[in-house]
Design a protein around this nucleic acid. Sequence first.
DNA 1: CATGAATGAGGGTTCATTCAT
DNA 2: TATGAATGAACCCTCATTCAT
Lengths: 187, 187, 187, 187
Amino acid sequence: MPKVVDHEKQRAELLDGAFELFADRGYAALSMRDLARGLGVTTGTLYHYFKSKDVIFEAMVLRVVARDLSAATAQLSDDLTSRERLQLIFGWIVANQMDLRRVLLLVFDFQRHKGDDQASQHLVAQASASYRREFEAQVGLGPGAWALVLGGLIQGLLEPDLDDASDRFKALEQLLFQGPPAGASLN
Amino acid sequence: MPKVVDHEKQRAELLDGAFELFADRGYAALSMRDLARGLGVTTGTLYHYFKSKDVIFEAMVLRVVARDLSAATAQLSDDLTSRERLQLIFGWIVANQMDLRRVLLLVFDFQRHKGDDQASQHLVAQASASYRREFEAQVGLGPGAWALVLGGLIQGLLEPDLDDASDRFKALEQLLFQGPPAGASLN
Amino acid sequence: MPKVVDHEKQRAELLDGAFELFADRGYAALSMRDLARGLGVTTGTLYHYFKSKDVIFEAMVLRVVARDLSAATAQLSDDLTSRERLQLIFGWIVANQMDLRRVLLLVFDFQRHKGDDQASQHLVAQASASYRREFEAQVGLGPGAWALVLGGLIQGLLEPDLDDASDRFKALEQLLFQGPPAGASLN
Amino acid sequence: MPKVVDHEKQRAELLDGAFELFADRGYAALSMRDLARGLGVTTGTLYHYFKSKDVIFEAMVLRVVARDLSAATAQLSDDLTSRERLQLIFGWIVANQMDLRRVLLLVFDFQRHKGDDQASQHLVAQASASYRREFEAQVGLGPGAWALVLGGLIQGLLEPDLDDASDRFKALEQLLFQGPPAGASLN
DNA sequence: CATGAATGAGGGTTCATTCAT
DNA sequence: TATGAATGAACCCTCATTCAT
């Protein structure tokens, strides 16, 4: 059944291309026409492979989440201390922050658009939990640490000119392993 | 004389109502017709008070930011330790987390829709910086602390069923003032 | 009845101001809001003096037509040759061509907008005939001559950069009094 | 393969139909909805073939100009005197005066609506110049002659009941080739 | 007299989607 | 399998007009 293989492969390629376009423009602002043109196909072709815009978006988000997750953990070996793991992970996060922010925005977009659909919301929670659990398992820290990572990414989204993300994540690392700087809690 | 209407007061009331509606549906998904209907006026009236949908949204964001800021700091007096301040602020954040998350989503939505418009992006950065600076001033901690707050909110957005937000913010407080739990860094 | 006098005077002043605005923008492109603002009043005031936009436009066109007619013939005395009269008239036309073109455009606009209304069309024809007859009486030439004047104005409208209107009207004068240049009819 | 439609041919047919509708109602007064209905399509289809209302209008004007030009000159052969050419052309103008007047009104309408847009003004000048140059080339007369033609058309617009257009153009022909009637310049 | 708030139909345009080919 | 023509509802916004004050 070679047809089926081609079909799935074509779907996958379209989804990869769709990520770049959706990530740049968001769900609502990217029309099917523009999406098709950006992918080098026609709208008819798009509808041949996917039932609707929603379906494309949903499948694309799930695909990207899975892809990032495996990429982030690929470099970690077992014989590292948790702090070394954290440094590697933070390094990867800083290096890929642009992509990660795009994914985050995409997820919020998705949540917005499918606010009533419990199944979709569950998918988001599931994907997010995958990231978080993997992170916690790798660095051996409690739930607070992951919030820090999310916050670091978001802050860069909200105030892009504030400072270097690299510095921000170094501060976070220190906070996580050495506690707050002395004197910080003085009133 | 015209119909007796306080123009500014009417604008303010429309903006307050607009927040509820935008927060529920998002920028793109809330049409001007629906917004007008939700506010109990007609589209013509909306355009009598505001030049465009963008203008409504921007004015509303600024208003909400100002309102939240004064509400969050109203309860703080000068003779508190920074940890006490943090506890009060975290308490307020937890109590108002639903509202804060809605604001965050709204801001991301807006950023998406106005990706090319530098002025709009600046508005977002400005509002975000207002929150952050006020927080840093109140608790006397460095930039990493604010990322933690953001992260705590976002995590609740992504995984609403994960745990009680109250617990999460207690853990963050401890992290900020006492450092990581002993043994956490053991591999 | 002083009220009535003021009322009529106010109407007249509004109409004079309306000419400048309608002439610049045309009937369709000038909104009642802009018209009111341009006149320094509110839309309510406008509707106090005139029943509708159509009524303002109609009254204004008729007023302008009457005003121009008397202005053009005011300077002519009886003891001039017809060629001298023509030169004076052409001079006046060239000097006032901008205004005349605006009136012409206004009339076309009017015709468009009131195409079904026989009474209005008749008013335009009547005003136009007044111009034409006065011209013919003054210069003592047949009906073809007036077409030349109209054509000269229109050509400037269509091709503003073509040449100087003054030259064009000099050529027309020569054509009317000395016939076509020799050799023009050679094939 | 898509539905078999010759894109260019369909565009052309839509433009031809658009002329009739625009000529009857004018640029501003004919809505895209009415235009579509008049053409037997939907607005979506219209926007499939043309980017905007302006584009439709501009393409239509150019098309009509080209069509009229070739129709007017089709009957002219090289071995005619310039006066014979003029007679043929005037005959064609008189026969098609209704159409020509509609084109003129349309152009004025357009000029009005797009007063600020230099490109549009250029289109008008270009179309007008095409007519004028062709006329001058055919009859071998100077620029004044064309003003006469325009004037003749306009006069018919302003005073439709005045006289027979045929008579008017005969008078113009005589004026152009034989000069003014004797005694006309006597005072 | 005069104001300007309010209306809601209608403007040009875009869009996700369908379907004949 | 793939095309792109066609649809028509919905988008943001403007408008002439009305009316309570």
